[in-house]
Design a protein around this nucleic acid. Structure first.
Length: 874
DNA sequence: GGTTTCACG
DNA sequence: ACGTACGTGAAACCC
């Protein structure tokens, strides 16, 4: 269970101030609070290992409570002279330590603590609250323990429900009643005059709550107490209200906000030194003695630690020779013009090596130096650390050099560590460890900064067991992808234009017909305007709604197809318009010299898949014939060559079979059966030859759903059947395929325990959603837990296959053109077709050994539309 | 810049 | 009573 530690900054600082002698810096600034607070902080960090932590502070001025009761805290002493500045010092230090802090105008630390506790409880965390304020005892629960400071500050006493009972014989919720009766002078909660702790406890043991006491006031023993209770009834109720911590504070936090990070020496030590905190420094160093020292942080420091050396031509040549001959590891940064892919041309290289940095400027360097430099880049033996090796490989390819031995790609490393991060540019990577790093002023500084964080990434990669995936899969794959992107696929722009003209014509006709049927012109592409026409003007029945209005998606319109003749026209229009804008126009804009080059994104998806952009060639139409025609314009770049495709058959279900070891599912694949037909036979309890095409369709939907984290809703929507029916299918399925059921349950249980899932190649995905307080989001987390190992393993296997295929292609006249998740598209000279197809099928089927066979189906054609099955001879 | 829709696996 | 199938990217609209 993840542990959240919450500290009451104000309360603890106050305790420390009064508990410790008045320590100061050499120049007289008070520091005793810093000593006390940090000593306690380090101690709890070491003993409790929080996964999340946060320090809450009051943001005084007009608090919400002052509106409730004018006297509240009116008598609280002014913050003493020696304490006030220490809050600023403390916040400065905590900032450098990367300890999250929270304060909110108008609220006290108390209320923030209550609100955080409530949320953390809902997310299934264990909570520890550190404070000197007994009010917090009201938050105790089976998951929440309150640590009250004892005597000084560095010693604390834990209170859980049992401890609270032993001490007061009260339940946590009665703490506010206690305060309601006895009051609290420090907070100026009035309570009831004449009632102190002892009387209050006695009353509560008997009558449980303030309300209980007041209702039974006549039974209360003690005349004075009784009369005071009667006289100050309202004050008692108000006091209880004042003592109640507000949980309805407008804060929302995500786990990431409060995640516990190890602090960094380069940031922490200087600030501790600034306040002469010698013993605290020793404590910190003791605790972090295993961390390697990373110097620097600010740009000045980076360059100070990696001073830049300016070289003459002679010196450059010698330096390069030295790096080359001694295989010196280099960390690189690059500036270039154009894009990596098209017309990309390097302008400057920043190099960090052996504690020095260098800048190579194309405009200033001699040809000889550039030549030697490029040789070095192509050298097998010189290890290189960089961010985004694919782009660098493309830039070098433009110079006729192939990048060799990129030992560490920090972008890919960071992606494997946390696939959900939005960006992996050099600055983002450096900011992981130096959050205050501003934009790099030059390439040398960038290289130096990368060199400083590289060991951190390497350590983390090893710690998480991702080294092989990084070095043996992702990094080499980036170089293969660079080749694939650079090669591009052939595209016939003329044919595409003709295709577009045909579509345009139909589109214009449809447009007029739609206007006529609607009896007005409007923007068909605007869901808003379309909704108005359909649901208001024409009065069609509304079914689904979106955030902003009526839904007009294809599913909704399909329902209304027969309700009005315009609907079918709109559906047609939509389809053709999509083809026109996204595909015809989109692709034409990207086509150059008869080719089109996509960019594969290797650090985007959370599952490990690739994605494809500008243009996306992984979503070229195929399902509907009209769109499928578009594939005719894709062809080999070499005349006479053919396209060769190979796709994994049912790879995700095979992986599910492998993971679950379900006997029926495994058998189905071992026997080479049609898995959907077999599933139908099992679910409907009939023999294989009795399965109708409708039954097979249903079974297919079930199989698909399984991989996504099956839901009744999803299946019923997909098949257009009632929920009851989909529920029945699912029940029947799990009755027959108990192994699958067990596996899916186990993977979710495991994921909840660990907060993450892994693929067969150890790829990791963290699933914070599993801890979300919102049930819908939590269930989403559960489906992610079911889907990611399957989808991610399929991605892993395809990546392995691509590496092997790329290697296997070397002797042949052939090239890899595209990857579409479970399909590879190649082009081959006809004379090599048989051998390449054989190699391709073999490498893909044997890329990784599962407990069920993998099968790959090849097709051949002169364009991407006319693809015919092709079975290589064994 | 967010929302909706729709193309793919 | 909720509001859902998993993973993407691009175009268009609209604020």
């Amino acid at each position: 269970m993840p542990r959240m530690v919450i500290l009451d900054g104000n309360s603890l600082a106050n305790r420390a101030f009064y508990a410790l002698p008045p320590l100061t810096t050499a120049d007289g600034r008070p520091t005793n609070v810093l000593h006390g607070f940090l000593t306690m902080l380090f101690r709890l960090e070491q003993e409790q290992h929080p996964d999340y932590w946060v320090v809450a502070f009051d943001k005084t001025k007009a608090t919400v409570r002052i509106e409730q009761y004018a006297g509240y805290k009116a008598q609280r002493k002014e913050t003493p002279e020696g304490l006030r500045p220490q809050f600023d010092y403390l916040k400065e230090i905590l900032t450098e330590m990367d300890v999250p802090m929270l304060e909110l105008a108008g609220y006290e630390a108390d209320d923030l603590i209550a609100a955080i506790t409530k949320q953390a409880e809902a997310q299934g965390m264990e909570i520890q609250i550190y404070t000197g304020d007994k009010d917090a005892l009201q938050l105790i629960s089976p998951r929440t323990t309150v640590f009250l400071t004892k005597k000084g500050i560095s010693e604390v006493e834990p209170y859980d429900e049992t401890a609270l009972w032993e001490r007061y014989q009260l339940r946590p919720h009665q703490i506010i009643d206690l305060k309601g009766l006895m009051g609290d002078t420090s907070d100026n909660i009035p309570g009831v005059p004449g009632i102190g702790e002892k009387t209050a406890l006695k009353l509560l043991w008997e009558f449980e709550t303030v309300e209980g006491v007041l209702a039974n006031v006549d039974k209360v023993s003690g005349k004075k107490v009784q009369s005071n209770l009667k006289e100050y009834t309202d004050q008692a109720i108000l006091s209880k209200k004042l003592a109640t911590m507000l949980t309805e504070v407008p804060i929302g936090f995500s786990c990431d906000d409060f995640v516990h990070r190890r602090s960094i020496a380069a940031k922490v030590l200087p600030v501790l030194q600034k306040y002469d905190l010698k013993s605290v420094t020793r404590l910190w160093q003791e605790r972090h003695k295993d961390d390697e020292e990373i110097p620097g942080g600010s740009p000045e420091e980076v360059l100070e630690n990696w001073p830049e050396r300016v070289l003459t031509e002679e010196e450059w040549l010698m330096q390069i020779e030295q790096w080359q001959s001694k295989n010196i590891p280099l960390t690189l940064a690059c500036r270039y013009e154009g894009t990596g892919l098209q017309g990309g041309r390097w302008l400057e290289w920043g190099v960090a090596a052996q504690g020095e940095t260098f800048t190579l400027i194309r405009e200033e360097a001699s040809e000889k130096v550039c030549e030697a430099w490029l040789q070095l880049m192509g050298s097998e033996r010189v290890p290189k650390t960089l961010a985004d090796s694919k782009t660098v490989a493309l830039l070098l390819a433009n110079e006729g050099i192939s990048l060799k031995r990129s030992v560490l790609d920090l972008s890919l490393a960071s992606y494997l560590i946390q696939s959900s991060r939005p960006k992996f540019a050099p600055l983002d990577l450096v900011k992981e460890y130096f959050p205050t790093q501003p934009a790099f002023r030059n390439v040398a500084e960038e290289a130096a900064a990368l060199a400083q964080v590289a060991p951190k990434f390497e350590k983390e990669i090893h710690f998480l067991g991702l080294a092989r995936l990084l070095h043996e899969v992702e990094e080499p794959l980036s170089l293969v992808l660079a080749q694939v992107e650079r090669h591009g696929i052939g595209i016939d722009s003329e044919q595409l234009k003709v295709f577009g003209e045909g579509i345009s014509l139909t589109l214009r006709e449809l447009e007029q017909e739609i206007y006529a049927l609607a009896e007005e012109t409007f923007n068909i592409n605007s869901p808003k305007q379309l909704g108005t026409i359909l649901f208001e003007k024409l009065g069609l029945p509304t079914a689904k709604k979106t955030k902003t209005g009526y839904s007009t998606d294809a599913e909704t319109l399909e329902e209304l197809r027969n309700a009005h003749p315009v609907v079918a026209k709109i559906l047609d229009y939509r389809q053709l318009n999509k083809l026109m804008s996204t595909y015809v126009n989109g692709l034409l804009a990207q086509a150059k010299e008869g080719r089109i080059h996509t960019t594969f994104q290797q650090t985007v998806t959370t599952t490990g898949r690739l994605s494809s952009t500008e243009p996306n060639l992984q979503n070229i139409p195929i399902r509907l014939e009209q769109g499928r025609q578009l594939r005719k314009v894709f062809h080999p770049t070499e005349p006479g060559w053919v396209l060769l495709s190979a796709d994994y058959s049912q790879i995700e279900l095979r992986i599910l079979a492998h993971y679950s070891q379900d006997p029926l599912l495994c058998e189905s694949f071992s026997l080479g059966q049609d898995v959907h037909t077999r599933t139908a036979a099992e679910v409907f309890g009939i023999s294989l030859n009795e399965v109708t095409s409708d039954m097979r369709r249903s079974a297919k939907a079930v199989n698909f759903g399984l991989v996504y984290g099956l839901t009744e809703f999803g299946l019923s929507r997909d098949l257009g059947i009632p929920r009851k029916e989909s529920k029945f299918y699912i029940e029947q399925y799990f009755k027959r395929y108990g192994g699958v059921k067990r596996y899916l349950e186990d993977v979710v249980t495991q994921a909840k325990k660990e907060g993450q899932v892994r693929t067969l190649l150890n790829r990791l995905r963290r699933i914070p959603e599993l801890l979300h307080s919102n049930r819908v989001k939590r269930q989403f987390g559960e489906r992610i837990a079911m889907n990611t190992p399957v989808q991610g393993t399929a991605a892993d296997i395809m990546k392995l296959a691509m590496l092997k295929v790329a290697e296997g292609l070397a002797p042949y006249r052939a090239a890899m053109l595209l990857q579409v998740h479970d399909e590879l598209l190649l082009q081959v000279a006809p004379e090599d077709l048989e051998k390449v197809a054989h190699m391709l099928k073999d490498k893909m089927e044997n890329a990784f050994t599962l407990s069920v066979p993998m099968t790959v189906e090849c097709k051949v054609g002169t364009n991407w539309y006319d693809m015919q099955p092709f079975k290589p001879i064994d």
